[in-house]
Amino acid sequence: MITPRRRPSIFESFNFAIEGIIHVLRTQRNMRIHFGVAVAVLVTALAFDVSRLELIALLIAIAFVLIAEMFNTAVEAAVDVASTSFDPMAKLAKDIGAGAVLIASINAIAVGYLVFSGQVADESSRLLDKLSEAPAELTLIALVLTIALVIALKAFSGRGSPLRGGWPSGHAAVAFAAWMAVTLVLGDTEHRFLVSSLTLIMALLVAQTRIEAGVHSALEVASGGVLGALVTLVIFQGFSA
C-alpha cells in the first residue's frame, strides 16, 4: 500500500519559496543584476524622498521584473528537463520567457525615469548650467584628446593595440566622452535629461559589448569610461566661457 505524501506545513512552504529565491540569486547572473539595481533604486528613492504613490509604482515595477526573471528561470529549467536535444519549440519557450523579462525591464526603466527625472534634473541643473555655456568645438577637442590619452596609456602599459584590447578601453572612453559632451552641449534645454539618459544608456551598452566579446575586462572598460568622462568634463570646465 502506497502511503500518501504528506502536505508541507506553512513553515515548510515558506522555506521552499525562500530556497527558490536563493537558488535563482546564486545561479542566475541577470537576477543578481536586477536585484542589485532594485536595491540601488530603493536607496535612491529614500534619498530623494519620493512620494508614497511614486514609491508604490517603483515597488510594483521592481516586483514585476524579479517575478518575470524567476518565471523565466523556471521555464528554462522545465524545458531543459523535458528536452534532451535541440527542439525549436523549446527554444521558442525560452525566447518568450526572455521576452517577458525584457518587457518588465523596459517598464521598470520607464517608471524609474518618470519618478526620478525631474528631481535629478533639478539637482544637477546648477552644475550643468555653469558648464554648458561652451562652444560645440570643445566636443571635438575632448574626443581627440581622449583618443590620444588612450593610445598613450596603451603604449605605456604595453597591452593590446590602439583599436583592440588593452588598458584602458578606447571604445568605452570615447562612448562616455560623447555622453558627457552631449550632456554639457545641450545646455538648459527642455529634453536635456532625457537625451543625456539615452546617451548614457548607449555608452553603457558599448561598454557591455566590449566585456561580453571578451576584448576587455570590466576594470579596463570602467577605467576607459572614467577617463573619457573626466577628460571631457575638464576640457569643458577649463575652456568654457
Rank of each mutant, 00 (worst) to 15 (best):
M1R: 12
I2L: 12
I2N: 07
P4V: 05
R5T: 12
R6W: 02
P8T: 07
F16N: 12
F16V: 11
F16T: 10
F16L: 13
I18N: 12
I18P: 08
V24Y: 06
R26P: 00
T27M: 11
Q28P: 05
R29V: 12
N30A: 10
M31L: 08
M31H: 10
I33K: 08
A38C: 09
V39P: 01
V39H: 00
V39F: 14
V43M: 05
V43D: 06
V43P: 02
A45D: 08
A45W: 08
D49T: 09
D49L: 04
L53H: 05
A63K: 04
F64C: 13
F64I: 05
V65T: 07
L66I: 06
I67T: 15
A68P: 04
F71G: 03
N72V: 02
N72P: 11
T73C: 06
T73H: 14
T73S: 10
A74I: 00
D80F: 14
D80Y: 14
S83R: 08
F86Y: 11
D87P: 04
D87F: 03
D87E: 12
D87I: 03
M89E: 14
M89P: 00
L92F: 06
A93Q: 12
A93P: 10
K94N: 07
D95A: 14
I96C: 04
A98M: 09
A100D: 03
A100I: 14
S105F: 15
I106A: 11
I106N: 05
N107P: 00
I109G: 06
I109F: 14
A110Q: 05
A110M: 10
A110G: 15
V111T: 09
G112N: 07
G112M: 06
Y113D: 09
Y113M: 03
L114G: 03
D122W: 00
L128E: 03
S132E: 04
A134T: 03
A136R: 08
E137P: 00
L138C: 02
I141R: 03
V144F: 15
L145F: 15
L145E: 12
A148C: 10
L149N: 06
A152Y: 09
L153H: 01
K154W: 15
A155F: 14
S157F: 08
R159L: 15
S161V: 03
L163W: 10
G166W: 07
G166F: 08
P168W: 08
S169G: 12
A172F: 01
A175N: 07
A178L: 15
M180P: 02
A181N: 13
T183A: 15
L184W: 04
L184V: 08
L184G: 02
V185Q: 11
G187L: 04
D188A: 14
T189Y: 02
H191Q: 11
S196R: 10
S197N: 06
S197D: 02
T199N: 07
I201M: 10
M202K: 01
M202A: 13
L205R: 07
L205H: 03
A207D: 04
A207W: 00
Q208N: 11
R210L: 08
R210T: 13
I211M: 14
I211Q: 09
G214E: 05
V215M: 09
A218H: 08
E220V: 02
V221Q: 06
V221A: 09
A222F: 11
S223H: 03
G225S: 07
L230I: 15
T232G: 10
T232I: 03
L233Q: 06
Q237L: 04
